[in-house]
């Protein structure tokens, strides 16, 4: 082993930190090399002196001062736990964020008069309703299809009450036509309901009680020959 390499291991050698094989190799080199031996002695001196370095001084009141600080820390922990549960602020804010956002939106809605708009009907709409009824009723009456009423619902139409009445009128018209033999080819169709069923459906049956006042007082039924007027159904 060359001197340069040996010297890189000398400090570790002096502390006996090397593997056995390397330790032996350096030991053999040192026996024949006075310069390296002198260097190794230097390391040994340093190691010996290191052991004699006095320990750092600790003041006598170290423990009491530390105890005082730990007591403060414990007191703070207890106080924090008592008034503010652990992790409450973090979780609280996470949960409260959407609630706060909703609250802010609601507040903004109220402040900008949104509720009043909801509660008080739109004046323009009301005027339109007042002006519309006759024409609209006529139009709807003339254009309604026989089964349209069945598909109408409260959500599908703003005028659901009117539509329902129109639908009922159409049903009544259908039943009346069947009673009168209309829409059939020369008589009562085999699949059409019998007379009793039709009268029941019209609310004229024996056990039928009529609960709603129909809007139809007069109905003009289209007939094949001429116009037949059916008056005062109920």
């Amino acid at each position: 082993m060359r001197c340069r390499k040996v010297r890189s291991f000398l400090s570790a050698y002096s502390k006996s930190e090397l593997t056995e094989a390397r330790h032996r190799a350096i030991f053999e080199h040192l026996e024949s090399c006075p310069e390296c031996r002198r260097m190794e002695a230097g390391f040994r001196e340093v190691n010996g002196a290191l052991k004699k370095i006095p320990a750092a001084q600790i003041s006598a009141d170290f423990n009491s001062r530390l105890l005082s600080r730990i007591t403060d820390e414990r007191y703070r922990e207890v106080r924090t736990k008592a008034f503010l549960p652990k992790q409450a602020p973090v979780i609280g804010m996470r949960r409260m964020a959407p609630v706060l956002a909703t609250f802010c939106l609601m507040l903004a809605f109220v402040l900008t008069g949104g509720i009043e708009k909801l509660l008080v009907p739109d004046q323009e709409y009301m005027v339109a309703q007042q002006d519309a009824p006759l024409n609209e009723l006529d139009n709807r009456y003339m254009t309604v299809t026989p089964d349209a009423g069945r598909t109408l619902s409260q959500h599908e139409s703003k005028h659901w009450r009117f539509d329902r009445q129109v639908a009922r009128a159409n049903r009544v018209r259908g039943y009346m036509n069947q009673l009168a033999g209309a829409n059939t080819f020369g008589g009562t169709a085999p699949w059409s309901p019998d007379r009793k069923t039709l009268l029941d459906r019209l609310g004229l049956g024996f056990n039928t009680t009529y609960r709603h006042q129909p809007i139809i007082r007069t109905y003009i039924a289209p007939q094949t020959d001429g116009v037949k007027e059916v008056q005062q159904i109920y």
Binding site: S11, A12, G42, F43, E45, V46, A49
Partner: peptide
């Protein structure tokens, strides 16, 4: 680093040693 520190110390203390 330990090796380097030891070498530095030995160099510094060499004459006084």
């Amino acid at each position: 680093r330990v090796n380097r520190a030891r070498a530095l110390l030995r160099e510094k203390l060499k004459p006084r040693m």
